[in-house]
Design a protein around this nucleic acid. Structure first.
Lengths: 333, 333
DNA sequence: TTTAAAAATGTAAGCGCTTTCATTTATAGC
DNA sequence: GCTATAAATGAAAGCGCTTACATTTTTAAA
């Protein structure tokens, strides 16, 4: 592997000059520049990124923390981030935190140990204080799907409350009055917000919220099934159920089928996220679209702008959810 | 950020000694070791991984190439790899190649430029020659789901042919004689092998293979739907369809429903891969289990063994597919 | 004790770049 | 042609580690 030294020798210039043409910022005469470029091509020179990092104190890598590496939601998020960063020659180091405080923390420190220039975090379990402490440590980062007032400009988020509102309003508009809700884990911010939106929609329609119509799931398929069972056992009758994500909605539909409860004629189901296979389910799932790809892209842009000084990037921090009506919800009879 | 120099000063030893306790391989007396450890703790010292990499000519990072960052299949693969490598303090740089020769190539060179110690590749589009050239460049890598005779020990793969065989045999055993097949893109090795298995199973059952019962899809949901339409328009009657992956099978089921064709009573469907939501579909999908998580883990182990000299790791290169019977396939009437 | 071998520790030369500062060369106004 | 200034280039000092080799200390056999 050729080094900068060999290039400088072949081109008959100093190291500094070669370095300059590589980082084509400083003024180098066009003539020498061509000489250097020619030498580089001749030697098939590739700068050693490790050495660059050490000397410039910049690794050109950004660390990403997701909850899980699998799952359609995070897949889209990672895709968006990697696509965007790669175009600028930055690389993406991905870790998963499994929604666990300790593991999220360990992942973040791991990324920092790797000298990432910045972090993009989908951190669920770690405390606000910890995140704020990153800020005071001078670490560059951006949060996806989390809101902390003190650092709101670092938060790329969806208006989850509005999403919860839309989902519930949709069923109310279809004439449903008795609605069940399957929530995500209540310690998660997005779960809380979605539930708030649900309550608000009920209130605005003059329907009172009933605790017994609300089941706390864990965002996984199985807890949708479990939730439906629990609700049927404990709650008064209901004609529709709103789920805080699509996977639980899928669980509800699966279980409903086992119970010979027809979706949507006997039970309308609404999900949240609009993950790819929401439209593969039967019936296809009415849900709230979460523009995670766009948000991932935006997070990457934020970093490009703040850390890598790319100009002309408009940063938008709050995204608006949209109702996606499909076959799993119909008018109440 | 404390450096090794400050540690050495505080501990009253030389740089070399500090370095030695960090890489706790060489002999350092227990007494000095404790002194150094204490100094490190006191300073909150974290080694600079970039400097380590430069000095040791080892980045402790492994590059991973997948086709897509999203999708349940690659999600599991990445999970497995990251989980395994992280335990050893290695990090994972992920890129996607989108099944496109140029992009796969660019990704690989990108990873190499980042000085990855090794690569784990799910390369579909790049040529055998290119991959062989990596070998001769002295690059450490392992291939997932691809077989090249000359470097077979670097290939972690599933017996795709056997999988195709099992899927078809399953329907034959259920009494089906008229079977359609929806293949993946024929230029992909796994698609070819799966189709071979299908043909073999037909042959072993004394059924002749009919080109017109075989549709070439692109592994995506939509081409399953398209395939079903095409087959119904062009092929003789069939009571079962084997799909080269689950997504296309899902497409078939969706389209069948639209056509009022009942699965499984009028059409048995079998998929391949056993991705997570194969069991969420309705009816739940009979499929071939692809132990991608185990294979990802194995690829990572291969690297740990070959590149990072971890001992006591058994490497297994060929994995065996298993039939997973669910509700989408029944006896032929 | 004496001494040779083994164990522990230190010295210093890189790893391949970036970047500050000094020096040389070109440019232009007179 | 001669300066004053700007532009281009070069020299060299790091960045924070690892590691070959040299040196010192310990251990144990004679």
């Amino acid at each position: 592997m050729a080094t900068i030294y060999q290039v400088s020798e072949l081109a008959g210039v100093s190291l500094a000059t070669v370095s300059r043409v590589m980082n084509n910022n400083t003024r180098v005469s066009d003539k020498t520049k061509q000489k250097v470029l020619k030498a580089m091509a001749e030697l098939g020179y590739q700068p050693n990124s490790i050495a660059q990092s050490l000397a410039s104190n910049r690794s050109n890598s950004v660390g990403v923390l997701v909850s899980e590496l699998h799952g359609p939601f995070f897949g889209d998020m990672m895709s968006a981030i990697e696509d965007t960063l790669r175009l600028e020659g930055k690389h993406t180091i991905i870790t998963s935190g499994h929604s666990d405080e300790e593991r999220e923390c360990a992942s973040i420190e791991f990324l920092l140990g790797r000298k990432c220039d910045a972090l993009i975090l989908h951190a669920e379990a770690v405390s606000d204080e910890y995140l704020l402490s990153l800020e005071s440590r001078g670490i560059e980062f951006v949060l996806i799907n989390r809101y902390i007032e003190q650092i709101k400009n670092r938060c790329i988020r969806l208006d989850n409350k509005q999403g919860g509102y839309l989902a519930t309003q949709h069923l109310i508009n279809l004439g449903h009055r008795n609605l069940a809700y399957i929530s995500g884990p209540k310690w998660k911010q997005d779960a809380q917000e979605r539930l708030q939106g649900h309550k608000q929609a009920l209130a605005d329609a003059g329907i009172s919220f009933d605790e017994v119509l609300c089941f706390e799931g864990d965002y996984r398929q199985s807890s949708g099934s479990k939730g439906l069972d629990w609700l049927r056992a404990h709650a008064p009758e209901f004609s529709g159920v709103i789920c805080a994500n699509d996977e639980m909605a899928s669980g509800v539909m699966t279980r409903a089928r086992q119970l010979n409860l027809d979706v949507p004629s006997e039970l309308s189901v609404v999900g949240f996220d609009n993950i790819i296979y929401a439209s593969y389910l039967y019936p296809t799932l009415t849900t709230i679209d979460y523009p995670i790809y766009e948000m991932g892209r935006m997070a990457a842009k934020y970093i490009l702008k703040q850390v890598y000084e790319k100009k002309n990037l408009d940063i938008k921090s709050v995204f608006v959810p949209k109702l996606k009506v499909r076959d799993s919800s119909v008018e109440s009879v």
